[in-house]
Amino acid sequence: MYKIVEKKILNPTVVQLQIEAPLVANKARPGQFIILRVDEDGERIPLTVAGVNKDKGLVKIIYQIVGATTKKLSYKQAGDYLQDFVGPLGVATRLDGLKKVCVVGGGVGCAIALPIAEALKEMGAEVTSIIGFRSKDLVILEDEFKSCSTALKIMTDDGSYGEKGNVTIPLKDMLEKGEQFDMIITIGPLVMMKYVVETARPFGTPVTASMNPIMIDGTGMCGGCRLTLNVDGKKVTKFACVDGPDFNGYEIDFDEAMSRGRMYSSFERHAYEDTCNLFNKEVR
């Protein structure tokens, strides 16, 4: 069992937890993920590591309440325990040699982008961050991004905070003005990452995208997380859990990944409702 040491509500649907898992904390690097189960018979869900405290043996995770398992997780409080917590899994984001980087995060993806931006700053790289949210009340980690970024752009879909529009607007603007990034690192919804790649394409700036597909074991065993890369005109199957989660954005078949992400949508909707109903019954 793994203790929840601290719980912080970042916005109405996004929660930050500090979990006691010293072995994971000791090893995890930016870009890697963990898999947890809330309770016995629970589903295994992958979540990217949002930070670690090696001295205290703590791993920070930030998640959005989107389905039954994250809903159940949101009922857990500091002092409660998680059934299982395993990691760090996947390959850490490759940051070696990067001097000037644009980090583009969307929604809860910003939680994963942050440790990468912080690691880059620590390396002495120049970091431009663009973070996007649906609206003002969903903005998270603004101060944290401010302190590790040379420049920070906040975008909201409805314009209620920062500037109105998608993250691709300032990105395109910067690239057109001749900004030369060694790398664009993007983490967020698939459709956002797809358009970040399309925005960068005419300029030829390298793009790394962090994938978060459906997976079970996270060690390469099930193959559920497979995605297709187009490498020099050839289709190549890769497993996000062991080959990723980071991939060259230009090679990823995003449309296929989006389609695969919908495999269990109807199941998930029902499971989510059931979890809420169950909880409401217990409260009553």
Binding site: C222, T237, R260, R262
Partner: peptide, 20 residues
């Protein structure tokens, strides 16, 4: 690691490895 055949359509929803 599960093997796939490398034929078109293996990434469609409803295609599993036996392991999964």
């Amino acid at each position: 690691l599960p093997n796939f055949m490398g034929i078109p359509g293996e990434a469609l929803n409803g295609v599993y490895s036996a392991n999964e």
